[in-house]
């Protein structure tokens, strides 16, 4: 086999080994969609019922593009004004293991969309629904709840804490149970 052919074959093999992250190149731009009701409590009289899930949750959560977009939007929509870089300020910390209104993607999405009574504003009709999912995915990454292969890495700006792809899971702080 000639070296040129071998090179070509190798190149073909190398290309085939790349798995391209799938994402929707034409994201939903509509405002205020996603009307899925999300309970804010685990207490359900008559026995716990399965929580409603949204198929967007999984597709956004482990996606590097959406996570990095979420990080950008976290600054642009002034989330960082209240929650700082996850440590909190006017609003609660997002990088710890405490979740006032639930830790699921669906719960965080609902918190951003509908607001919460003690100060969290409602961004309904202000942020496109897909961007709310991106924000929710980034918020989860702050407490180490996103795959490290997808979570954002170093900032261009002043580093406030280790990058999101190095954050330990806040619930266990990286320790095995």
């Amino acid at each position: 086999m000639k070296p040129a052919v071998a090179m070509l074959l190798l190149a073909g093999l190398a290309l085939a080994a790349c798995q391209r992250e799938e994402r929707d190149t034409r994201p939903q731009s509509a405002l205020g969609s996603g009307e899925q009701p999300t309970p804010v409590t685990a207490l359900e009289p008559g026995g716990q019922r399965p929580s409603p899930t949204d198929n967007k949750a999984a597709s956004f959560e482990a996606n590097a593009f959406h996570l990095s977009e979420g990080k950008r939007l976290f600054g642009w929509f002034n989330c960082s004004g209240c929650h700082a870089n996850g440590g909190g300020g006017m609003g609660p910390a997002l990088m710890d293991e405490k979740w006032i209104y639930g830790s699921s993607m669906e719960s965080i999405h609902a918190t951003i969309r509908d607001g919460r009574p003690n100060g969290m504003p409602s961004f309904r009709d202000k942020i496109p629904d897909d961007q709310i999912w991106e924000l929710a995915a980034f918020v989860r990454s702050l407490s180490g709840n996103a795959p490290s292969s997808a979570a954002p890495s170093r900032n261009d700006d002043m580093m406030a804490h280790p990058s999101e792809n190095r954050m330990p899971d806040a619930a266990t702080l990286g320790k095995s149970p």
Partner: peptide, 20 residues
């Protein structure tokens, strides 16, 4: 004192506008 009254996370150097 927001770190205590607001239960903020000291791992973020910029929390509470940097006071934490």
């Amino acid at each position: 004192g927001a770190i205590v009254s607001g239960d903020l996370d000291p791992r973020d150097a910029t929390a509470a506008l940097g006071f934490v």
